[in-house]
Design a protein around this nucleic acid. Sequence first.
DNA 1: CTCCGAGTTTGTCGCCGCGCAACGTCCCGG
DNA 2: CCGGGACGTTGCGCGGCGACAAACTCGGAG
Lengths: 233, 233
Amino acid sequence: MVRKLDESLIAPLPPFRRLERTQIREILDQATSRRHDEGSEVFRSGEEADRFFLLLDGVVRVVRILPGGDQVILRHIPPGQLIGIASALGRSTYPASALAASEALTLAWPTRLWAGFVQRYEGFATETWATVGRRLDQLHDDMAAMATQAVEQRVAACVLRMVNQTGRPVEGGIEIAFPITRSNIAEMTGTTLHTVSRLLSAWEKDGVVESRRKHIVVTAPHRLVLLSGASGG
Amino acid sequence: MVRKLDESLIAPLPPFRRLERTQIREILDQATSRRHDEGSEVFRSGEEADRFFLLLDGVVRVVRILPGGDQVILRHIPPGQLIGIASALGRSTYPASALAASEALTLAWPTRLWAGFVQRYEGFATETWATVGRRLDQLHDDMAAMATQAVEQRVAACVLRMVNQTGRPVEGGIEIAFPITRSNIAEMTGTTLHTVSRLLSAWEKDGVVESRRKHIVVTAPHRLVLLSGASGG
DNA sequence: CTCCGAGTTTGTCGCCGCGCAACGTCCCGG
DNA sequence: CCGGGACGTTGCGCGGCGACAAACTCGGAG
């Protein structure tokens, strides 16, 4: 637990954007901070949802494990967002697991503080619901894509989204800012690692992406957009 | 617009469950009621979200139309639920269209009343967020199913869900309580009407369902459960 | 340096399910 | 009673993508 956190770290983030400095101070003083190794669990599906988190740094993967045993990656969360707010939506237990996709830093609060936050800090609630709204929206998009798009388009869209959310400029293109395997992409797009591997190879041959082990650099984003959207080449 | 609505109609519904009679009266007096013919629009994707609705009777289909032109059915809403609450989640326009799958009856309120409802009626907010939570949850399930399940399993699960949500007992089984075509099921499960037709035919031959034009009766629910879940026959 | 395992690539094969097309059937309106 | 249109069924062929298999490469531990 870090004792004195700097307000400026979180003041510009959506949930706190509209709050006063003293209010942010109050909120911060009730938080505990935690470091998560790459691959470790922030929380686990089915556990009692006794805490909610703010992701300060790193990327968190939200995963659901099916009765059948295979897992599905529901989304990646970039820094600055709240996670584990299931309890706010009336669930007593986490509906999915959250894994640190890279080394991650979080703040955590006990769930019982949630109601107070919402009640006391006007903007907090609004911004949070807006975030939930965006997630719902994106989920709908994903569903629609899953239902109608071909595999190549889905994978292209998936890579693009991760670049948009977490991409950092690098020589020759934009890189996805956390370690990601073909398997991971397969679990996001509902296909197999084999197919993803083939697609990336083909794209690399066409000069759209470059990929090293666990790293992907997009060199021609506009080409990827074409691949994801209007099916024409 | 119907002038005097009976509180008992809506008092037991989730959003109003915890409210007092007088409060419900207040809320009702601000509502306008509307009848929707089968197939007509309750609201349209992209329109300004200036109203939210409570579905009193009938079933509403939530549809998203993709840039490509084809449409996807995101969910069916059974009576008693709120719809069009996009504005509450920070969206200024409806993210999807809502069509009456059968003749439907709704209450409508102007969006500007939302904030007041949430603030004034304690339980209203809680119950609403719980509903949103359930929708998110189900969406996650759907995603996961889409990503991992075979077509037959998805279609079986889809039929089952509609039976659970809106099924009514009928001689020889349980019937889905609103008109539904093969195309509709195809648009829900991300396949084609041809495949759905074949599946239903096969199931009918096996005595699991009976289907008339636009109507489906499930005669052996447990068999359908098998088809949807543990792939073993 | 060497070993080992995780991650990746590539090939082959087979099947599911989509596209297309034609026909059958029911319902509704004139 | 008849016609037309929407809905449903069925057959056929092809192709994408998943299953299986085997080899390669990288990186870290000892």
